[in-house]
Design a protein around this nucleic acid. Structure first.
Length: 505
RNA sequence: GGCGCUUUCGUCUAGUGGCUAGGACACAUGCCUCUCACGCAUGGAACACGGGUUCGAUUCCCGUAGGCGCUACCA
């Protein structure tokens, strides 16, 4: 391979929300580009006007913004190889289709989709190829004047690639090694449709990758069967010397059962398969997204990076910079990877742990506010530092720590039974009096005073603290007691204590 | 059906001819402890099968079986 500048692309079709598998493909492209000081191009492959979904392009762009995958060039990013939307490149494709027609690598076919359907119904495994093309209605079988007449009459046609049979086509894949297929099994693919004056994927893809100086094509495994066709296309254009290197990534599979990961799996098992929430413009259906489900983008990236690739050491927590440094196409696994959403939850937990308390508090603040509470950021940050280790998602923090803001109205029955004894009220009254007498209500001072009191009286640590906890929290959970009383303050602590004494008796 | 890709613990994977087959998630147990968690420690758990090649195969080759993908005027 020559020392060509690394240029890769992510080229989705705007047909709906970006699937998580597509996100991983984009991520690998990004990592590869950045590692090699190259560029990542964002191209929109909208050659099928029937499948266009409004809003999809914006959705995809917003997804990558959230995830921190940055493009260097392409739709909305500019660059010298534009336009980057295939629907805006009609003239370019038209020109190259003509090149193929002129050098006999392609031909015009008039068979309608309906006619082909009939043919397929009649003949088992019918394929439009060297063995059948002469019996079809095309410029190879028909006299030249008739072809011209049909075109002049405005008859719709397609341009098909003329695949020469009996040739071993070799694809050198960066992940899978040498893949060889016999050109005889390939069909004469439609490259261009006169009806909408647009090419199909195969032609547009090759022309664009060539014109945009793409050096490596990193894409999903579903493209592997058509890679030989693409090689043939590069050859037909005489671009074989600058043909990009291919790397076909394994697919993402269902967490359980058979098949590839689908939206249904997410719904069934309770995890998203899209980066952002998606509102389908036609059906109005809403699909959940990782962002709205409270996943941190770092966790999604880290998890996805390790699904089908790993650096070969035991380090799993990796920042984007680290991933860029360590990524290696040759270490990508060849077999499909099941989507282990439990591990992703673990990653989310780890990233909550790793992030600054303040940063988590800022994410948490709107959740708190939605419950009608307006804490100051300092207090919330302290609470977060005490509580964040116990949750997998930021929003779970509310259930874990709402007692800091809202006094218990009820007391958990089981906990009362277990922790509130006949003499608890009396002891809590003593504790209340003791705390009331403290001028210094700091956590350290409370801790000292209460311990001395417990020791002097010969009380059990557990009986005091558990009853105290029940009074302040309403149930048997939470951090160290003085981390609660100290933060809610003396007045609130005494109020909760007194209420428990009254209510529980 | 045809063609291609693929196959190590339940899951993600390390491994590249000789290892007690390593790590992580999940699971179980224990420790910590004023509760619940976190955390920490420990444990169970895998080379799909059959032939070769070799002194020796998880590792190389060939089959079989399973899995996945493609087989459109969709990408």
């Amino acid at each position: 391979m020559s020392e060509r500048k690394v240029r890769v692309r992510f080229a989705p079709s705007p047909t709906g929300p970006l699937h998580i598998g597509g996100v991983r493909t984009a991520l690998y492209n990004y990592l590869f580009a950045k590692q090699n000081g190259g560029e990542l191009i964002f191209r929109i492959e909208d050659t099928d006007s029937n499948r266009f979904v409004p809003g999809a392009e914006e959705y995809i762009l917003e997804s990558f913004r959230w995830l921190g995958i940055k493009f260097d060039e392409g739709v909305t990013f500019g660059g010298d190889c534009g336009p980057y939307r295939q629907s805006e490149r009609r003239d370019i494709y038209k020109k190259y289709v003509q090149v193929l027609l002129d050098n006999g690598k392609a031909y015009i076919a008039f068979d309608t989709p309906e006619e082909l359907e009939v043919k397929r119904a009649e003949i088992d495994n019918f394929q439009y190829d060297a063995s059948t093309r002469l019996s079809m209605r095309n410029s190879l079988a028909l006299p030249a004047d008739e072809v011209k007449a049909l075109i002049d009459a405005g008859k719709q046609y397609v341009v098909r690639f003329k695949v020469e049979p009996g040739e071993k086509v070799v694809v050198n894949d960066l992940i899978r090694g040498v893949v060889t297929i016999d050109s005889s099994i390939l069909d004469d693919k439609v490259l261009y449709k006169s009806a909408d004056e647009l090419p199909t994927y195969h032609l547009a893809n090759i022309v664009d990758d060539h014109l945009m100086n793409i050096s490596h094509v990193i894409r999903g495994e579903e493209w592997l069967p058509s890679a030989p066709l693409h090689v043939l296309l590069y050859r037909a254009f005489g671009w074989e010397d600058t043909m990009p290197q291919f790397a076909h990534l394994s697919l993402l599979l269902k967490p359980e059962g058979n098949g590839k990961l689908s939206k249904r799996d997410g719904d069934r098992l309770g995890f998203p398969v899209f980066p952002l929430e998606w509102h389908d413009p036609k059906s109005g259906a809403v699909s959940s997204g990782f962002r709205e489900s409270d996943y941190l983008p770092e966790a999604v990236i880290n998890f996805l990076a390790l699904l089908g690739w790993n650096p070969g050491d035991d380090v799993e927590m990796m920042s984007m910079d680290r991933l860029i440094e360590k990524f290696d196409l040759a270490k990508c696994s060849k077999a499909g990877a099941r989507f282990d959403y439990k591990k992703m939850i673990w990653f989310n937990h780890e990233y909550i742990l790793q992030k600054d308390d303040r940063e988590i508090a800022e994410i948490f603040m709107p959740v708190v506010q939605s419950h009608g509470v307006e804490p100051d950021m300092e207090l919330l940050t302290r609470i977060v530092s005490l509580m964040k280790g116990r949750v997998n998602f930021v929003h779970e923090l509310w259930d874990a720590c709402s007692f800091y803001f809202i006094a218990p109205v009820e007391y958990d029955e089981k906990t009362v039974k277990k922790r509130w004894k006949d003499d608890s009220a009396a002891k809590m009254a003593e504790l209340a009096a003791l705390l009331d007498g403290l001028d210094d209500f700091s956590i350290e001072n409370q801790d000292k005073a209460v311990h001395e009191w417990i020791e002097a009286k010969g009380y059990g640590m557990g009986e005091i603290m558990n009853a105290f906890r029940l009074a302040l929290v309403g149930e048997g959970k939470g951090p160290q007691m003085f981390d609660i009383s100290g933060l809610i303050g003396k007045k609130e602590t005494l109020a909760r204590l007194n209420r428990a004494i009254t209510v529980l008796g």
